[in-house]
């Protein structure tokens, strides 16, 4: 029997759309995005190790509007991945696997990640007063 005639699991389009699907793939996408962002973290640490001139340039790049936009994306991605990571750990412990609970916890993750991002940026702007 060739590989062609073996039964395959149905493709993604077969399933009825659920919000939890979108949250699931967002966990992966934010994970990959954060991996790219970790290069920035290493660059920031190296800039600090190189010296005052280079570090000032790095801080300047991060506080430009492009830098802030990237950091806004990365902070949201980090808080989303962190909150949804807690959701995953709860599932691993066997909690919250019912459909209704999984939908509600998903909503809590989205709300929590947006709230934490707002608190983070609010704190920065309050501290700097700019």
């Amino acid at each position: 029997m060739g590989t062609r005639s073996r039964p395959l699991s149905p493709h993604l389009q077969v399933y009825r759309f659920e919000w939890t699907m979108l949250l699931s793939i967002t966990h992966r996408i934010t994970g990959v995005g954060l991996a790219v962002g970790s290069i920035l973290l290493v660059w920031w640490l190296i800039a600090l190790a190189i010296g005052p001139g280079y570090f000032a340039m790095a801080q300047g790049m991060l506080s430009s509007w492009v830098g802030r936009l990237l950091l806004l994306g990365w902070t949201w991605a980090m808080f989303y991945h962190l909150c949804n990571g807690i959701r995953h750990l709860c599932w691993d412990a066997g909690w919250g696997l019912e459909i209704g609970t999984a939908r509600n916890s998903g909503l809590a993750v989205v709300a929590g990640s947006i709230l934490l991002t707002l608190i983070f940026w609010g704190a920065i702007y309050m501290l700097r007063g700019a």
Binding site: A56, L82, I86, R128
Partner: peptide, 21 residues
């Protein structure tokens, strides 16, 4: 990573406008 990232986020926010020193 849960506590470590929260610690780093707070630290990084407080260093947002920091100079090298």
């Amino acid at each position: 990573l849960l506590p470590l990232l929260l610690w780093f986020a707070i630290s990084f926010a407080s260093l947002a406008a920091a100079d090298h020193a």
